[in-house]
Design a protein around this nucleic acid. Structure first.
Lengths: 130, 130
DNA sequence: TGACTATATAATTATACGCGCATATAGAAA
DNA sequence: TTTCTATATGCGCGTATAATTATATAGTCA
C-alpha cells in the first residue's frame, strides 16, 4: 500500500522508467559503469539526448555519477531496478503473447452485451466481459 | 536483461504505472474488485476520467473486467503489480528522505569542477561528483 | 594563455497526455 | 417502446515530454 504522501513520487519514478531510451541506458549500465560517450556509442543515440535522459535518471536517483577527468562516469544506484524490469518483463512477455494471439483472431473488441447479441460473431464487444 | 523486441512494451507498462491517479485505482482494487462508480466514489475523481484510466490499465492488462448487470466490475489481473509498487515505494521512501535532506541544506547543485573552484560555496556543482 | 575533448544546457518544434465537459451507448426496469 | 442508471467516448484546452540543433561549460594538455 502506497502512502498518499509519496504516491506522486512513486508515480514519477515509474514514469522515469517508462521510456525505452532510459531503459536502454539502464541496461547498458547493467554491464558496468559507463561514461556518457560510451553510452552514446552503445545506444547509437545523440549525446545531448543521452545526457538529458541521464539527468532525469539521476534526479530520480536511479543512477549516480562521478567525475573522472573529463569524463563523467554513471553507475546504477540500486540493482533493485533490474528486479523491477525483470518483473515487468515477464508479465509483458505474457501480455505480448496475448496481443499476438488476438491479432491472429478477430480484432478490436468493444463494449457490448454479454452474449454478443446484435453482433455477427460470438466475440463479446467488451474485452474481458463474457 | 530486456530483449530489444519488447523494450517498448515494457516501457509502456512502466509508463502506465507512472500516473498517480492510476496507482490510486490499483490501490482501490487491491481492496477487492470494484465497479467504476465505486472507484469514482473512493477516489473522488470524475467518472469519465476514471473510465479512461481504467481503459488504459485494461489495455496494458493490469486489470480485467466483467459485466455484472449494468455495472462493470474491474479486478487486478496479476498481484505482481503490488510487488512492483512495493519495491518502488521502498526506494522512493529513501529517495524522499534524500530530497528532504537536500532541501534543508543548500539547494540546486550544478555541474562544475570537483572542488568548487570559481564558486562561492564549497558545494560541488554537479550532484554526485566530488 | 589557447586548442581540444567531454558533457550539459538552452531554444525549438512536434507529439503525447491528462482533465473536464458534453454526449453516446448498453443494459435494466417500467 | 420510454426512462433511468452505469459506463464509455469524442472534443478542446493546457501542459508535459522527447528529439534536434546549436551553444555553453568544465577539464586536460600543450
Amino acid at each position: 500500500m502506497i502512502h498518499e504522501n509519496i504516491i506522486d513520487l512513486v508515480a514519477r519514478r515509474f514514469q522515469v522508467l517508462g521510456e525505452p531510451c532510459r531503459l536502454r541506458i539502464l541496461q547498458a549500465l547493467q554491464g558496468g559503469d559507463r561514461s556518457v560517450n560510451q553510452i552514446v556509442a552503445e545506444l547509437g543515440a545523440t549525446q545531448p539526448n543521452v545526457s538529458k535522459h541521464l539527468q532525469i535518471l539521476f534526479d530520480a536517483e536511479f543512477v549516480t555519477r562521478d567525475r573522472c577527468g573529463n569524463n563523467i562516469i554513471y553507475s546504477i544506484t540500486d540493482p533493485v531496478v533490474f528486479k523491477l524490469c525483470d518483473l515487468v518483463c515477464r508479465s509483458t512477455a505474457r501480455h505480448a503473447a496475448h496481443v499476438q494471439k488476438y491479432a491472429n483472431e478477430g480484432r478490436s473488441r468493444k463494449l457490448t452485451g454479454p452474449n454478443g447479441r446484435h453482433r455477427r460473431s460470438r466475440t463479446s464487444s467488451i474485452q474481458g466481459v463474457h
